[in-house]
């Protein structure tokens, strides 16, 4: 009984806190989300700049800052679009978890990309299965070793 009442009190208090926070600063949450998105964008920008520099060295060119920011914006939009599509694909397959199959479906339009992704996926699966086998082997070995020790 006491635990239930405690839980209820906790829920009520928690909700109260949430409500008051929202009442006091209705835009606080919005700002927080915006800041979070900005940080994500900054992370994308950094990586895009890194990749561009790498490719620029190969081709002996440098990238203007405008290009890097435009490309990072495009990448951000692309990731947004991709996540929306993936969610819909998963929903269509009556799943709530996005799978590797969904990603393969997403990139089906460019054959080389599909091949690349398929290859990566196969390799990863092979690695995970070999790991599992190793685990099984080790788990089988362990008791024997214990017996040997005895």
């Amino acid at each position: 009984m006491s635990t239930i009442t405690r839980e209820i009190i906790y829920i009520v208090r928690h909700r109260k806190i949430c409500v008051t926070e929202k009442m006091e600063n209705p835009e606080k949450e919005n700002y927080e989300k915006l800041a979070y998105v900005q940080r994500l964008k900054a992370a994308v920008h950094y990586t895009v700049a890194e990749i561009c520099e790498e490719r620029g060295k190969e081709c002996d060119v440098t990238f203007a800052k405008q290009v890097i920011s435009a490309l990072s914006e495009a990448t951000f939009r692309y990731s947004q679009m991709m996540s929306r599509d993936l969610e819909l694909f998963a929903k269509h397959a009556k799943r709530s978890t996005i799978n590797t199959e969904d990603v393969k479906l997403l990139v089906r339009k460019s054959p080389q990309m599909l091949m690349h992704i398929q290859d990566l996926c196969d390799r990863r699966e092979a690695a995970s299965s070999s790991k599992k086998q190793r685990k099984k082997k080790t788990s089988r070995k362990d008791p024997q070793e214990d017996e040997d020790d005895k």
Binding site: L40, V44, S79, M82, S83, L86
Partner: peptide
């Protein structure tokens, strides 16, 4: 984080392998 930010349904999740492929 990018993908999770844009999922509209709270129930949707994503596997680690899918994140790697993305």
């Amino acid at each position: 984080k990018l993908v999770q930010e844009n999922l509209k349904d709270d129930k949707s999740k994503i596997t680690a392998d899918a994140v790697l492929l993305i």
